[in-house]
Design a protein around this nucleic acid. Structure first.
Lengths: 221, 221
DNA sequence: ATCGTCAATAATGTCGACAATCTAGCCACG
DNA sequence: CGTGGCTAGATTGTCGACATTATTGACGAT
């Protein structure tokens, strides 16, 4: 884990991704500035970055809002992520070092632990580190930057994909498959495993979207 | 073509992409502000966006520079582009409309014309429109946005690849192959054709980088 | 001659004030 | 009762001033 950043951008980003601001909520500069204890100037800069990143929409003279990620866009993002991470997994398999493999092994053990204890939040965090380790091993800054910039975190929060019963168990198996391919330096296998994993994620997302629609139809408002 | 924007961001972006500022050149806020006739505030905002976009590097308390794209990064960019555009070509094949197909046909005709007349610049421009038509047909804004961002970085070195003898002719053949697959609504074929096309581009880029190094070794300075 | 210190300079970061712009609510009018 | 315009308030956009931070070059000690 990198150091905790204290600048407005990272603070605000964290706040949005973790759901402290709701989709479509207005972000009034003065209010936000007071909330995270920084000047309005810094908030403005942060908003520009977040707009470029797609987490916020910025309309001239009309302020900023937390960007609502549509169902369609969520699916698109996961699709792109699959393409990018597939490529990254392939490269990682070709050049991964023993040390990183060991770290991945530890992450998987910890994941297994979280699954047994039903700790969804902890699992989700480990999931992120697992993928980050692969990015490191892939040694492909450009693709890693793009993949990191995707708003998959926000999606997971918005749609609560981790809540699908039994998802964690199957996700664990998929991660183990990826690990196996990486350990064997099997490029094709790694890309394949990663793609099927993300295809499953996409499927889960479709399910989450569907159930969300169903429930909101029964409980309008 | 969209309307000509006059805000600092687009002006500065255009200036950088069109090579009016050289790689690694320092972008002093005051100087830039005067150059493009806007306030320093606007320049600051523009720099933040361009930094997020990857066209500029922004170091705290040390100002902004035009981002230098290393040989390695140039290759990485093409690699990612191949992954994204491959996906886009696949989707395009599945849903392309007759009208767009006709437009693509016209573009190809025009390309053939440019090749015969040895008009490299014109060909390059048509190349861009060809790909953009495919993005439109793919109807995948997220991927298109990412690919577009990469493209703007790529422009700065792409001109080198057009210089390889006989490249344009072969490029034309590759584009025809892509068109054929799209016309047949052959998803696999389209992705495959696009990937081989971009693999060729990557190979040409390697060649360009290599010859560049050789010549600079014989003619130092 | 080399290194380190320090002042001078240039550039960035931040703040407050004010102007430009949008929004909500009120009121007159049909 | 609905519609349209208008004013008051809230919010964003821009500017200039100043504080903070890097960089450069001169100078002196070793």
């Amino acid at each position: 884990m990198t150091v905790k950043r204290r600048d407005a951008y990272h603070l605000l980003r964290e706040a949005i991704v973790s759901g402290q601001f709701h989709p479509n909520e207005r972000l009034v500069e003065a209010a936000v500035a007071e909330r995270i204890r920084v000047g309005r100037t810094a908030v403005r800069a942060a908003l520009v970055r977040l707009d470029q990143e797609g987490l916020v929409t910025l309309e001239k003279n009309r302020g900023a809002r937390v960007r609502h990620i549509s169902d369609r866009e969520a699916l698109e993002i996961e699709e792109v992520r699959a393409a990018l991470e597939g490529m990254l997994a392939r490269r990682a398999a070709e050049r991964i070092k023993l040390e990183v493999l060991r770290e991945l092994h530890q992450v998987i053990s910890a994941m297994r632990d979280r699954v047994e204890h039903g700790d969804a939040a902890g699992y989700s965090e480990l999931n992120a580190t697992f993928h980050q380790h692969i990015w490191t091993a892939a040694d492909h800054p450009t693709a890693a930057r793009l993949a990191g910039g995707l708003k998959s975190q926000a999606i997971r929060f918005q749609y609560q994909t981790a809540m699908r019963p039994g998802r964690a168990q199957r996700s664990l198996v998929e991660h183990e498959a990826i690990y196996g391919a990486l350990k064997a330096h099997d490029a094709d296998g790694a890309e394949e495993a990663m793609r099927t994993h993300l295809a499953e994620v996409l499927e889960t997302l479709r399910w989450a979207i569907d159930t969300q629609h169903r429930s909101s139809r029964w409980l309008p408002g």
